[in-house]
């Protein structure tokens, strides 16, 4: 038997009532006003409704505010921080590699190599310089800093920075999924967050035409194109989506355009409605499958002449008219 929201709630405590409304559930409704009066939660139904309403308003207010706080700004900050952490880790890893090459005569340029250095330093008893130690000050036990120690310390920072980037990625994945569930489902949470960051906000992304979303992140190439100096870019950051990358180069423009179209719809649903629409993913899957099946020789008769050379005669898909940015050109986003 399910219980009403008022079970175990003090009548004069709207916050406890709000928590019970937000977190509770029941298999079936019942005559809650009658039961509440019976249980002494309220003297009459009038008082019951007043208490219910106070608690419900509090519950809706706090729940809505919480969802708004887990908002697009947080996802944007987090994805930028994640990119900064990754880029910095890579830069420092290169510095470590250059330095260690001068001492140990070996090479290795990535974070993995830094991990290896840290392991070796630990095993060899080299005291890595911690964050508290300045480069010239003696180490904790009074001995002067060594190059090995400084190098191991720097490598340790790289490893930590890389771990921080992973933590930020997890946060981005969680936040993007909460603030823009459809966008995150279609684009992947990280690409979704990048699009939010490039557009500035979910609102602004929701108001952008899909052609703009398609080239977000390729602004340099786009303006070069507008100056007449370059072909139009086929894609911006949507390039990182597997549906674009896994498509043959000749069809990538089509794939990017199809993806951007669905992402634009997803962003609008996320901003204006907020509910999940799994149908979008299915539509995108079908669309990409059709694009990728084009001219790959398995088209069963019709595909024979449908190579990239037959441009301007795109089969089937009605929305391929007005084909811009154009297909069959080298990628313009440098």
């Amino acid at each position: 038997m399910s219980e009403g929201w008022f079970a175990g709630v003090e009548p004069d405590d709207p916050e406890a009532g709000a928590a019970a409304i937000r977190d509770g559930r029941a298999d079936a409704p019942a005559d809650w006003p009658g039961l509440a009066v019976e249980a002494g939660f309220a003297d009459d139904s009038r008082e019951y409704y007043a208490r219910l309403r106070a608690a419900a308003i509090e519950a809706a207010r706090t729940a809505a505010a919480e969802r708004e706080r887990a908002d697009d700004r947080q996802a944007i900050h987090a994805v930028r921080a994640m990119d900064d952490a990754e880029r910095t880790a890579n830069e420092l890893a290169e510095r470590v590699a250059e330095w260690s090459a001068s001492r140990y005569g070996e090479s290795g340029t990535d974070v993995e190599y830094c991990r290896e250095l840290v392991r070796r330093a630990d095993a060899g008893g080299v005291a890595a310089e911690g964050p508290d130690a300045s480069a010239t000050a003696p180490t904790a036990d009074g001995t002067p800093p060594t190059a090995d120690g400084a190098l191991a310390g720097l490598a340790a920072r790289v490893v930590e920075l890389d771990a921080e980037a992973d933590r930020l990625r997890a946060f981005v994945e969680h936040t993007a999924g909460a603030v823009a569930p459809n966008l995150a489902a279609l684009a992947g949470p990280v690409l979704g967050a990048r699009l939010l960051a490039l557009a500035g906000s979910l609102e602004s992304l929701a108001k952008k035409p899909s052609g703009t979303i398609q080239v977000l992140g390729a602004e340099e190439a786009l303006f070069a194109h507008l100056r007449g100096a370059a072909p139009s870019p086929k894609h911006g950051v949507v390039y990182t989506h597997e549906y674009v990358r896994s498509t043959r180069p000749e069809e990538r423009g089509s794939a990017a355009r199809a993806l951007a179209g669905k992402l634009a719809i997803a962003a609008r649903i996320d901003y204006y409605a907020g509910d999940r629409r799994p149908a979008l993913e299915r539509e995108l899957d079908e669309r990409i499958a059709r694009i990728q099946a084009r001219g790959d020789g398995s088209g069963g008769g019709t595909g024979a002449t449908d190579g990239p050379e037959s441009n301007g005669n795109d089969e089937g898909d009605g929305d391929d008219s007005g084909d811009r940015p154009a297909d069959g050109r080298p990628p313009g986003d440098g």
Binding site: D27, W32, P33, L52
Partner: peptide, 18 residues
């Protein structure tokens, strides 16, 4: 009485709605 819930999941408000 406002409720921030998904109408597709009535079990999330059946403890409130009579």
């Amino acid at each position: 009485v406002p409720l921030l819930n998904d109408a597709r999941q009535p079990d999330t408000y059946a403890h409130v709605v009579e």
